[in-house]
């Protein structure tokens, strides 16, 4: 075969691979949308389930998902951003930063079910007097551990993107390190940090395995952080696995997908703003 014919065939294959990936995405989203759109309504989102989920809405699961995400981010966001500030502003690229970065990468790779086992052993059994055992607090903290590496990584990248010259100007005018962090580094990295936080919200809201041992499946409004509840993902698993109500299952799935699409859209907006900032700085 002529080398130009081979070249053309190879390019057709490469284009096809991209098309296949787009088609896969459309198939997954389209399928969930078509099956779920019939169930979706305002009352589906805001009503209590009736008759063992066969009727009514999914309000407790929505509330539960919201609570675990808030708990997870209240832990992971300050700790993650703090870590990033420390690594970029207080440390050179030394052994300490390498240890933290390696641990963070390893944490990121830990399988989600292992987080589930860990949360079960630590929060549900070992610390049960403080967490209420299988509670929304336990679930939220487990998810917080899980998203910590994402926040560290994205915030660190964002802070390293703040132009060196701006920092030097700040020091040159006699500003202290803390003033420089507050007035230059943090404002300059807000879009990046926000992107990391939204990515983490998406991960926390979509995870099932880490919290499956910590939720109750009874559809009640959670009484407090120490009380039990369920989330969109755990409810979806239960409904799909037990085959209780496929209509409600697909309604729940579509709700989850719409949340992910919304979060994805927001990160896109932030990224655009980020690249505009960078261009302005050049």
């Amino acid at each position: 075969m002529n080398k130009h014919t081979t070249d053309r065939l190879a390019k057709i294959w490469l284009w096809m691979s991209a098309v296949v990936i787009i088609l896969i995405l459309l198939a997954v989203l389209g399928y969930i949308f078509i099956k779920g759109v019939g169930a979706l309504s305002v009352s589906f989102l805001l009503d209590m389930p009736q008759n063992n989920w066969r009727e009514g809405g999914i309000f407790p699961a929505i509330l539960g998902s919201l609570i675990v995400v808030v708990v997870a981010l209240s832990f992971a966001a300050p700790v993650g951003v703090g870590t990033a500030i420390y690594l970029t502003e207080f440390r050179k690229d030394d052994w300490f930063s390498r240890v933290i970065r390696t641990a963070s990468d390893a944490l990121n790779a830990v399988p989600s079910i292992v987080f589930g086992l860990f949360g079960l052993a630590l929060f549900v059994f070992y610390l049960k007097d403080y967490t209420g055992g299988p509670s929304l607090l336990s679930a939220g903290l487990t998810l917080g551990f899980m998203v910590l590496p994402t926040i560290i990584r994205t915030s660190e990248v964002a802070m390293r993107g703040v132009p060196y010259a701006e920092k030097m100007e700040s020091y040159g005018m006699g500003a202290s390190k803390l003033q420089t962090i507050r007035n230059i580094v943090l404002p300059g990295s807000v879009p990046g940090i926000a992107t990391g936080i939204i990515l983490s919200i998406g991960r926390a809201v979509g995870e099932t395995a880490p919290i499956i041992f910590m939720v109750a499946l009874n559809p009640t409004i959670p009484s407090s952080l120490f009380g039990s509840g369920n989330t969109l993902t755990t409810q979806l698993y239960y409904l799909a696995m037990e085959g209780i109500s496929l209509k409600v299952a697909f309604g729940t799935a579509l709700t989850l997908v719409l949340i992910i699409l919304l979060l994805n859209h927001i990160t896109r907006v932030f990224k655009k703003r980020l690249s505009r900032n960078l261009r302005r700085n050049c």
Binding site: I21, G206, A249, A253, V257, I260, N264
Partner: peptide
């Protein structure tokens, strides 16, 4: 987006 879709959604699909 493919990376952001929760695993349980892939499972249901």
């Amino acid at each position: 987006l493919l990376a952001g879709i929760p695993s349980i959604i892939y499972g249901v699909f």
